[in-house]
Amino acid sequence: MPATPAIHAQDLGRDFTLTTGPLLRRTRRTITAVHGLDFTVAPGEIVAYLGPNGAGKSTTMKMLTGILTPTRGHLHVLGMQPARRRTALAARIGVVFGQRTTLWWDLPLRDSLTLTRHLYRVPAATHTARLDELTHALDLAGFLHTPVRQLSLGQRMRGDLAAALLHDPDLLVLDEPTIGLDIVSKTAIREFLLNLNARRNTTILLTTHDLSDVERLCRRVILIDHGTLAYDGDLDGLHALAPAPRTLIVDLQAPADPLDLPGTRHLRSQGPRQWLELTGAPAPAIAAAAAHHPIADLTLHEPGIEDVLARLYRGRS
């Protein structure tokens, strides 16, 4: 028997009614934030849910967690309709918003996590074992007794992750979990999430503007734009959807005229450094550069997901 999907959306839509004008001559118009959205997330997947600002990501997240009721279509999360079974669903999901905290600002982190235990009605013995596990995995020991308002952003984010996972949820929804963090904190959180998924098969749905998170964590990307599905597949398919050119960066030993190498188009120069867009295979261009010019260094820049998404957004707009 196939497993119940962690998330199943079919023809999902959400409208908002906007009222404007003076009191006696008000006008109403409908704004569609999400329209005809279809996707399914299997248990244990780590999926990136991406889109430009205003694409409908936050609206979708609020429907997934039961905060908003869909205007039309069907939505099931862990086999439940979120808006109808919001309390039951809350016991099986964890949510982290990078720009908001669920912790109590003036309490030590340990006290905040104790209150969270009572909210989710986690038995004391289970809470103790789970907190010990999370303290080790997230390296919380050094600031468990520090008031939340005194924590650094990276420490607070680790505390929020612990609070979201104390009740051992089946689904973890992350909205910008590494926003504003330094590279060390980002790396620690990414490694933790990968280990969590591997050890406990926790399903993770991630929205982020830090596309390094996507490349490190996710095999699958769901992309929405103007409230509709624009892409659903792996990273290789996303690269193929809007291919971005590779760039050959040539550092000469001295400034020179623009290079004319086979299979390239000169983009710009800055002192002895030149940027060339590759229109063919890189080997002939590199060989010609090395044979005919005094080269100090050569770098081949492969397009990242940022380049692909930028091209895709420009094309759709």
Results as ranks from 00 to 15, higher is better:
residue 33 A to P: 01
residue 58 S to G: 08
residue 43 P to H: 00
residue 73 G to F: 14
residue 240 A to F: 02
residue 97 F to R: 00
residue 304 G to C: 03
residue 102 T to C: 06
residue 134 L to E: 09
residue 248 L to I: 10
residue 26 R to N: 14
residue 300 L to I: 06
residue 176 E to I: 13
residue 66 G to K: 04
residue 238 L to T: 04
residue 107 L to V: 00
residue 102 T to R: 06
residue 156 R to N: 07
residue 111 D to C: 02
residue 40 T to Q: 13
residue 25 R to S: 14
residue 18 L to Y: 05
residue 20 T to V: 13
residue 229 L to T: 04
residue 73 G to S: 13
residue 47 V to Q: 01
residue 74 H to C: 07
residue 26 R to Q: 15
residue 301 H to I: 02
residue 25 R to P: 01
residue 173 V to M: 14
residue 40 T to C: 09
residue 186 K to Y: 01
residue 300 L to V: 04
residue 80 M to F: 08
residue 66 G to R: 04
residue 68 L to H: 11
residue 186 K to G: 07
residue 168 D to A: 14
residue 217 L to Y: 08
residue 46 I to D: 04
residue 37 L to F: 07
residue 42 A to M: 07
residue 307 D to V: 13
residue 260 D to L: 09
residue 165 L to W: 12
residue 82 P to Y: 06
residue 154 G to E: 11
residue 42 A to V: 02
residue 77 V to H: 09
residue 101 T to I: 09
residue 32 T to G: 06
residue 282 P to D: 05
residue 232 D to Q: 05
residue 90 A to D: 10
residue 233 G to M: 03
residue 92 R to E: 13
residue 138 L to D: 14
residue 185 S to C: 11
residue 265 R to T: 14
residue 158 R to P: 08
residue 58 S to Q: 08
residue 281 A to F: 00
residue 3 A to I: 01
residue 47 V to S: 05
residue 93 I to Q: 12
residue 70 P to K: 04
residue 80 M to R: 14
residue 311 R to S: 10
residue 259 L to I: 08
residue 312 L to W: 10
residue 149 R to E: 09
residue 4 T to N: 04
residue 199 R to V: 07
residue 126 T to R: 15
residue 312 L to F: 12
residue 278 L to Y: 09
residue 267 L to D: 11
residue 164 A to I: 11
residue 208 T to I: 05
residue 228 T to W: 04
residue 77 V to N: 06
residue 299 T to Y: 10
residue 92 R to F: 05
residue 108 P to I: 09
residue 315 G to T: 03
residue 136 H to M: 05
residue 103 L to E: 04
residue 55 A to Y: 01
residue 30 T to Y: 10
residue 212 S to N: 10
residue 198 A to R: 15
residue 72 R to F: 09
residue 271 G to H: 02
residue 101 T to C: 07
residue 179 I to C: 07
residue 283 A to W: 05
residue 20 T to R: 15
residue 310 A to V: 15
residue 301 H to Q: 15
residue 147 P to Q: 00
residue 193 L to G: 08
residue 264 T to R: 03
residue 13 G to D: 06
residue 46 I to V: 15
residue 197 N to A: 14
residue 230 A to H: 13
residue 162 A to S: 11
residue 208 T to W: 03
residue 48 A to T: 04
residue 5 P to S: 05
residue 309 L to G: 02
residue 198 A to S: 15
residue 258 P to H: 03
residue 142 G to Y: 07
residue 197 N to R: 13
residue 276 L to I: 03
residue 96 V to G: 05
residue 121 R to Y: 12
residue 244 A to W: 09
residue 306 E to R: 00
residue 192 F to S: 09
residue 244 A to C: 12
residue 187 T to E: 13
residue 112 S to C: 11
residue 225 D to T: 07
residue 72 R to Q: 15
residue 125 A to W: 05
residue 258 P to L: 01
residue 164 A to T: 02
residue 89 L to C: 15
